[in-house]
Simulated scan of single mutants.
Amino acid sequence: MHPYLITAKPGRIRRTLTVIRVWSVRILAFTVMTLLGAAVLLVRCARPLINYLATRAIYLELWAAQRIGRPPVSGLVGAGLTDEFIAEFHRARRTATAGSPR
């Protein structure tokens, strides 16, 4: 008989600690996933409100620019940024895979 083939079964305390470790990691991972999911949902739900507020701010800035006779700088910059974000979004949608690694 070879002595290295005889293995001791882990004790009850060690098995309990292993179970606690495994489940604590699972609970931590679930908590992180839940918090990230809530953050993403919050951002996605707030997006229409942010877009509305940005549009109103641009109109207000245009109105103020007409009253004082200066060009509306922030509206032009914001429109350029918006166009670039839209182009990047559509570019990402065209090149994204539907979960199938190739």
Rank of each mutant, 00 (worst) to 15 (best):
H2G: 05
H2C: 05
P3L: 15
L5R: 09
I6L: 11
A8Y: 01
P10K: 12
G11C: 01
R12G: 02
I13S: 11
R15S: 07
V25S: 12
R26V: 09
L28E: 03
A29R: 08
A29K: 08
M33T: 06
T34S: 09
L35D: 04
L35V: 12
G37M: 03
G37C: 04
A39G: 02
V40D: 00
V40I: 06
V43K: 09
C45I: 14
A46K: 01
A46P: 00
R47G: 01
L49D: 09
I50G: 01
Y52P: 00
Y52F: 06
L53D: 15
A54F: 00
T55A: 13
T55C: 01
T55V: 03
T55F: 08
R56Y: 06
R56S: 09
I58N: 06
Y59Q: 15
L60V: 02
E61L: 02
R67H: 14
R67Y: 06
I68M: 08
R70D: 04
P71Y: 06
P71A: 09
P72Q: 05
P72K: 02
L76N: 06
A79P: 00
L81Q: 04
D83W: 07
I86F: 08
I86E: 08
F89T: 14
R93Q: 07
A96H: 05
T97K: 15
A98Y: 02
G99C: 02
P101W: 01
R102P: 03
